[in-house]
Design a protein around this nucleic acid. Structure first.
Lengths: 348, 348
DNA sequence: TTGTACGCGTTATCAC
DNA sequence: GTGATAACGCGTACAA
């Protein structure tokens, strides 16, 4: 193992002062030709890496890293993010990182805009957000760029050309995974893609999953299967059960359901109540889904892992601020397949 | 966000010197009653956390963290550990951690002992090892304790009462997962547990998986299924295919195979060549397995994630040495279910 | 029993 | 242009 060289070592080897070495390293100019040569010669011979600890020691500044995402009382999908935040606080608070949590109403673009603007007004050092609303997110993105606030998104892409760093999954691929799972659980029949309670803003989100699912079966080109899609929204005059029941009456040959949202339990509930023999694959380890997974009324869940997304996003920002680490443009997380036997370890 | 208090802050608030505060904090004694009271009063009011950066700055020492595991040319299962090592080096070298890689012959207890002893002789600060040989591991463990070298194990437990820190998976549970998967892929028939090319030393390792698998079906108590177990070892007079072929001739009702090692591809190869309709579930993302996964001759793989195991193990040791973080006694990693659609993201 | 002074590696400022 | 020096927060040796 080689020695750890310091600026002092270099200055002694080159026969100049620490200050000169510093000026060479940081290209601040004001260095004579001869001194520059001497220092560069040494730098070529040894491998110098600045000590990040000493660097950040001088920074007694506390960096404010903020995370903005929907409130959990509307959708427990987001709850695991709290664990990620707590973990980050424990690990990085000592390094001078303060994590702030901001939430918005997942059904209201206005709420998103308000919260984001309020957040920007406090001039944080960096923002990680889960932007459900594409249009509004563009406005926020622009504002952050103007104010030179570092911004990353997780769960939702807002930038096709990835100007904004993104942490999440390949949604198209999750659709393919669901398809493969239903393919292995069944041998034939009608497969139903169900979008539940999703607003327009999430259209692209859901659409990608649907496309992935269809793509798998198009590729397979198996005449034993047929695919169709429905949207369900809880309205005043009809509930989930009634809607599904009437749909199944006119489509009796359904053998599998792919639910594109965390409300997979809705389909599972219907399956239980109607005592139908259908296979169900859906998304996310929310409590109600896990209950059905345990009982066998959901076969597989795909874990979008919001905790890991949030954690990775916060971590990237923190390490960038502290140690000037580059933030990857795109971080695609693994897509976990969950059944009744392996969900436990994914919960924490 | 609250201010970050330093020892200097406390000393000024309490009207004593930094040295006194330090003595109180570290309970070194030699502090008068009155000074003790004053300092403690301040400490109660504010929340003081020492700055780990400043603490480790003084340590210009390079910590040697060593990892000992089998050579990959014998079993590509271990190859991903190299990625973990590289990543750790990139992240922690700057903090004064040097990672050293030591390998042993996975078939030779003597080789393990030799390598481990040679390693201990160099007096490293910490060792992370994958100990395939239980008896020999006990000797090494004892020697490390004597020499006060911190030791953790990954992949293999060597300590029922967890005196040694362990990073890995719940192997019993992986067996249950395999069972659940085969259960969902089939409806009835004989299920075959296959141990391939495993020596005695790994008996407990394989046994746990087998027990988990059986436990699942005992719990389910479904008369449509029956379970049996075989051991295959490549010998001079017979090859895998012949052995399996003759076994299947006398047991024609087999619908699923559970291979307890990374040599799952052996079963898949047989399935392909004999054109049998059997479902196969096995372990690990080694190249040959992935080929069969893509072609459909393996249905699911369980990822033991050696990379994550090694990474987590090294990380625990590094952060313990640098920041005096406590090492968890047992870290049970998630058990990933892999099919042809989601293996890619798990590879890197 | 207490306070002071120094060193760790980097950076920034200030005389020369 | 250059080199000396202070500062960051902590630990500690040593002087008072």
């Amino acid at each position: 193992m080689m020695k750890k060289y310091t600026i002092k070592d270099i200055s002694e080897l080159a026969g100049v002062s620490k200050g000169t070495v510093d000026r060479v390293l940081h290209k601040r100019g004001k260095v004579s030709e001869s001194a520059l040569k001497k220092v560069n010669k040494i730098l070529e011979e040894i491998e110098y890496k600045p000590n990040p600890i000493a660097k950040s020691l001088k920074n007694n500044k506390i960096y404010r890293v903020c995370i903005l995402f929907p409130r959990s009382n509307q959708d427990s999908f987001w709850t695991p993010c709290l664990t990620a935040i707590k973990e980050m606080e424990n690990n990085y608070q000592a390094f001078g990182i303060s994590i702030e949590q901001h939430r918005y109403d997942s059904k209201s673009p206005t709420s998103f805009l308000e919260q984001a603007n309020a957040l920007i007004a406090t001039k944080p050092d960096a923002i990680l957000m889960a932007p459900l609303f594409y249009q509004e997110a563009q406005i926020i993105k622009k504002r952050c760029f103007e104010q030179e606030i570092i911004i990353s998104t997780f769960n939702n892409v807002i930038d096709k050309n990835s100007l904004t760093n993104y942490i999440g999954q390949d949604l198209f691929q999750t659709g393919r995974i669901a398809a493969k799972l239903l393919d292995s659980l069944t041998t034939s029949g009608d497969l139903l893609i169900v979008h539940i309670d999703e607003q327009v803003q999430n259209a692209t989100h859901m659409q990608e999953k649907e496309n992935g699912f269809k793509h798998y079966f198009e590729e397979k080109n198996d005449p034993a299967y047929s695919i169709s899609t429905i949207n369900i929204n809880k309205t005043l005059d009809t509930n989930y059960f009634e809607f599904l029941d009437s749909y199944f009456k006119s489509n009796p040959n359904i053998t599998g359901i792919f639910v594109t949202t965390s409300k997979t339990y809705v389909a599972a509930q219907f399956k239980t109540e109607s005592r139908k023999d259908i296979k169900i694959v859906g998304y996310d380890l929310v409590e109600k889904n896990i209950e059905h997974l345990k009982k066998g009324s959901i076969d597989f869940l795909i874990n979008q892992n919001p905790k890991k997304q949030a954690f990775q996003g916060l971590r990237n920002l923190a390490e960038h601020l502290l140690f000037a680490k580059e933030i990857p443009k795109e971080t695609l997380l693994p897509i976990d397949i969950i059944n009744s036997e392996n969900y436990r370890e994914y919960l924490e």
